[in-house]
Amino acid sequence: MGNGHFVLNTDLGSNHDYMAKELSKELTNTVKKYFEVYPFAKDGLDILFLYCNSFEAITRSVESLFKQVKRFKEK
């Protein structure tokens, strides 16, 4: 559903901050587009994180999404 970015280096020790920022940006954009296509999903949407090596990426993604969710629902 999202635009998608291919990242070659997913080594645990490298660039947690970069990966977290990219994942949160991609997730936010995907949810925004999903709400545009399926406006009824604004009432409730489940998101599942699978095979994520960094808790920082999940935390930043959820925080970013909650910051944006009010703006998504208002539109």
Rank of each mutant, 00 (worst) to 15 (best):
T10E: 08
G4Q: 10
A57V: 06
V7P: 00
F72G: 01
I47V: 15
Y51A: 05
S61D: 03
A57K: 04
L27Y: 05
E22I: 15
D46T: 12
S54F: 08
D46V: 06
L12R: 13
L8V: 14
T59D: 10
K42Y: 00
Y38Q: 12
L50Y: 11
T28H: 10
F35M: 13
K21P: 00
R60D: 07
Y34Q: 07
L12I: 12
E63D: 14
N15L: 06
R71L: 08
D46E: 15
S54V: 01
L27N: 01
E36C: 02
H16P: 07
I58S: 01
N53M: 05
F40A: 11
L23E: 01
K73V: 00
K75N: 11
F40H: 12
Y18M: 10
G2V: 03
N9G: 00
F55V: 14
F72M: 13
G44E: 11
K73G: 00
Y51R: 14
L45T: 10
T10P: 00
D17K: 02
T30V: 06
G2T: 09
F72Y: 12
C52W: 05
S14D: 08
E36P: 00
L65R: 08
N53W: 02
F49P: 09
E56R: 13
A57I: 02
T28V: 15
K21Y: 09
H16C: 07
K75Q: 05
L45P: 07
L8H: 07
E26A: 15
Y34T: 12
T59R: 15
L65D: 04
I47N: 08
E56M: 14
A20E: 01
L27T: 05
F72D: 01
A57E: 03
G4F: 06
E56L: 15
S54Q: 12
A57H: 04
E36V: 01
T59H: 14
